[in-house]
Simulated assay, not measured.
Amino acid sequence: MKCDRGVGRRRAPARPWICFGIFLALILAAAAPAARAATVQPLEIVTKNGVQVFSVEMATTEEEKEKGLMFRKELADGKGMLFDFSPEQEVSMWMKNTYISLDMIFIRADGRILRIAENTEPMSTRIIPSGGLAKGVLEVIAGTAKKYGIEPGDRVGHPLFNGK
């Protein structure tokens, strides 16, 4: 990259660190929207088999909730995304533009699991309803509920649910 000061007249090249600074600023400005990291928090589910701990990305804004886990090619075991639908309400989800199968865990305001939609179909526009009032939805890789024995009625520990 050549960085000359002035137009029409030939001048001495600017100092390399100025060129580097401009170059870096342009790269950071272009990457700014993509660089925004989601908030990651721990979440626990108490099952008959014990406590399962997950590391979840929070989806709290409308934009984050609309995008969810779309376009991702993988999701590690023990990771997930927690959608905040405060206040408690009927919730509907879908798998449009979602390449990986998920378990969707619908959670009531009191932290109890309301319903689990297991092994959802990737790329589907079929509506997946909460089946009642939910304050949050936890999306984890398909097979997680079965693997850890997670069932409706199990308690979720996270500040979103009654401060626990």
Rank of each mutant, 00 (worst) to 15 (best):
F23D: 01
A37K: 13
A34M: 04
R15Y: 10
R5V: 12
A37R: 13
F23I: 04
A35W: 11
G8Q: 14
L28Y: 05
A37Q: 11
G8K: 08
A12F: 13
I27Q: 01
L28K: 05
R15V: 10
A32L: 14
R15L: 14
C19Q: 01
V40W: 08
T39Q: 15
R36M: 07
R36K: 15
G8H: 11
R36T: 06
A32D: 04
L24H: 08
A14L: 14
W17C: 03
I22N: 01
A14G: 11
A14I: 12
F23H: 01
W17T: 08
R10H: 13
A37H: 03
A12N: 09
P33S: 01
P13G: 02
Q41F: 07
R10C: 11
R36E: 13
R9K: 14
R9T: 08
G8R: 06
R15T: 08
G8I: 09
V40K: 10
W17A: 01
A31T: 06
A37S: 09
P33D: 00
L26G: 02
A14M: 15
P33R: 00
R11N: 06
A37E: 07
L26P: 04
A31W: 03
A25C: 01
R36W: 06
A25V: 02
R9Y: 08
R15M: 08
A35M: 09
P33Y: 00
A37L: 08
Q41T: 15
A14P: 08
